[in-house]
Design a protein around this nucleic acid. Structure first.
Lengths: 153, 153
DNA sequence: GGGTGATGCTTGAGTCAATCAAGCATTCCC
DNA sequence: GGGAATGCTTGATTGACTCAAGCATCACCC
């Protein structure tokens, strides 16, 4: 994602700030992944295998096709970061786990991707709480669902 | 970008809120682009050709290789959304302009992508100003530069 | 118990984004 | 005038992503 997923003519200062923040966040994430030889998608998937998980589960969570996960996991597996195990309860399913190397790389990645931490550290504790509240409220109250931005008409 | 560029184990509520917001923003952008038959990159580039611009200029702004812009613009051009004109002052350069159809599609896209507007509309004017201020401060004060998230060591 | 359909995953084909290396034309500048 | 820098394109390669098919397994139901 070298190209930012941002608007171009944000009308208000608040909208501009949202865009700049999102853009900076995305770029930081990409840079951190890159610094560890991963793509954004790979870093994202690796991060979500903290506990054993099925492919289907991941695909649903990430909102993409299962075959996409197959590919990404294959690349992670080729680097010995992730393993596919049989699911004792359902032999169709694969339980994904991180190898020790995967754990290590993920930890290193999370340490490198300090955008959110750094952003928070620019604020007082009170301001952090305020920001979280405002972001939640802006999102539509609920727990971060994609409320905002449904069908327009 | 079906796969979100977000962390997995955000430690504080503020970090979680940032992630959820960024994720929702990105998804909304992608959905809006898709709804108009564009990819994220195409919508982004189309949006930036409000006034005539050079390819190099765009590549720098988006932080990617010039050849990447060449491709994206070619696809937009194939759909008659964008035109390449000769630059009278420099015959190496191409000045990009939107066709009327391009203007129209971009306007429709911006209308569809109402995430930021909708998010803002969930807040009072005072809260909007507060949010903008907090986001700016979190970003490191400066005007949205990628301050936060430089080299870690 | 044996179909029938749903489910979990993979494979293959195709599109697009993105990067790098080369190359062409032009412009800059000493 | 000539060499270097600049603007853009082409070609090759990788990865993400989607869709259509296919295989194996599971779940249900008569």
């Amino acid at each position: 994602m070298a190209v930012p997923s941002g608007p171009v003519s944000p009308s208000t200062e608040a909208e501009r700030a949202m865009f700049d923040f999102v853009d900076a966040y995305d770029r930081a994430y990409e840079m951190a992944a890159d610094r560890h030889g991963m793509t954004v998608a790979q870093a994202c998937v690796l991060g979500r295998i903290a506990r054993p998980r099925g492919m289907r589960e991941l695909a649903d969570e990430l909102g993409c096709d299962a075959s996409n996960i197959t590919q990404i996991v294959s690349r992670l597996e080729a680097r010995d970061l992730v393993e596919r195990h049989a699911d004792p309860h359902d032999r169709r399913s694969r339980r994904l786990t991180r190898t020790p190397a995967g754990d290590e790389l993920n930890a290193a990645f999370e340490k490198t991707f300090e955008f959110a931490r750094a952003a928070a550290s620019n604020l007082t504790l009170e301001e952090q709480a305020q920001l979280a509240g405002l972001l939640r409220k802006a999102l539509g109250g609920a727990a971060g669902a994609v409320q905002v931005g449904e069908e327009p008409s």
